[in-house]
Design a protein around this nucleic acid. Structure first.
Lengths: 232, 232
DNA sequence: CTTGTAATTAAATTGATAGTTAATTAAATT
DNA sequence: AATTTAATTAACTATCAATTTAATTACAAG
């Protein structure tokens, strides 16, 4: 009787050749998902195995060690996406203002394609001790910052860009208006009435804010509130 | 001879009465510092003890258990600050636009007074699994979101506020322009030329962006770039 | 049909670390 | 001098993670 239990236990040895996907890729998927969810350091082989519905031994069998697994996820999955994104983001010359809008839009849409990126970025770049901070600071950030700063300075001299802005801080603002809202989406989506907000709406809102700020763009500045030292 | 070694080993029992500060408070300080640095979950009693230059046993002696220590740091240190801040942030009625500027400024200055807040917020609210997300989502966020949303809606009907903005998303933008840049400061300060940026400069930049956006506020919209669907 | 190889699990091993407890010692208080 | 209080060192225990080994099964090549 107990010889042919077709339903229960997942069979001990090599499984019948059917597994559609590449097993290795599946494991990397599982790892990446958990890395984004819990952070790299806090994700054990056991957890990855469980996520992939596999034993820890198998994960080890495939990658040799946890360390190597991490390296492979980084080099095969994360770095390519980040690199490509940063490359796209720095190749919009054109007119400065358009370049800034394009960068913002591209940023938002890229995150939609790789939903794991915002949380991972928060954990591994924004958080102290994150494993990607050094990489970003060495390979990505300086170029982007410089590019945006130059665009901004140029536009300010043209008189096209709000002269009160600090060209250096513009890149920080841009990330605060794109990457950050997406990383925070799981939070604000839980607020009453926020569930229905689409990425298009988000994009429109952020672009509108970026372009003209919150104040109504009336030519004459009458009694309109002036941003500045209001409270001591 | 071995009876009175005045130099070496750190003496077994109670040390000479010299400890200036309240020992308990010192331990809480150490804990809070590490919580902000590494996250609550990743901070062991051992680490806290080491940070406070004390043995793990002592920490346990004071607080009974790790769990209780965490609770006490939360209730005695973190929650009061967060609560007070949120209270201050929701009590600016006045004119809508001014209220928004005031809120922004207050936010930035409050973070300066409690530098541990931005990193802690990132770890424990923004990151999935953070221990403060639930608290925030229950006690702080709904009120603030509602308040800002109402301000925004009112101002839009007055014609004072940029009509293209989504009143719901304004609070998200505000946090992205205040809390986020401060949390990211350790990163961008490492970029060449960024070290010297003061919080005043940061505040001015963000307020300027918030008020009028990046485009020069020329009454007539001539060839100026229009924010919108530029790239497919 | 046999044999070897690849993929997989179960179980054992090892190592670290964490939280906690116990015993001990010195100062402070009475 | 006796007792209480504060602090330390050291040891205990549990957990858990990474790895290793052995056993099991499927498939492929000869």
């Amino acid at each position: 009787m107990p010889t042919k239990a077709t339903t229960k236990k997942p069979a001990r040895g090599r499984p019948p050749a059917s597994t559609g996907e590449d097993r290795r890729a599946l494991l990397l998927d599982a790892a990446l998902t958990l890395f984004a969810q819990q952070g790299i350091a806090a994700t054990s082989l056991n957890a990855i195995a469980k996520q992939a519905k596999v034993t820890p031994a198998l994960v080890h069998y495939y990658f040799g060690s946890r360390e190597q697994l991490v390296e492979i996820v980084l080099s095969e999955r994360i770095v390519p996406v980040v690199d490509q994104l940063s490359q796209e983001l720095t190749q919009y010359p054109a007119a400065p203002l358009q370049a800034i809008y394009a960068l913002t839009q591209r940023m938002l849409s890229a995150m939609q394609e790789s939903p794991w990126l915002p949380p991972l970025w928060v954990r591994e770049v924004l958080c102290e001790g994150g494993l990607l901070r050094a990489y970003l600071l060495e390979h990505i950030a300086p170029g982007m910052a410089k590019k945006v700063r130059q665009l901004a300075s140029a536009a300010q001299q043209n008189g096209q860009l709000n002269a009160e802005l600090d060209p250096r801080l513009l890149i920080v603002s841009l990330i605060g208006l794109t990457l950050f809202p997406l990383a925070a989406a799981p939070i604000w989506q839980q607020l009453p009435g926020y569930k229905s907000i689409s990425t298009e709406q988000l994009t429109q809102h952020m672009l509108a804010l970026l372009a003209h700020g919150i104040e109504t763009n009336s030519g004459e500045k009458k009694h309109g509130a002036r941003a500045g030292q209001i409270f001591k």
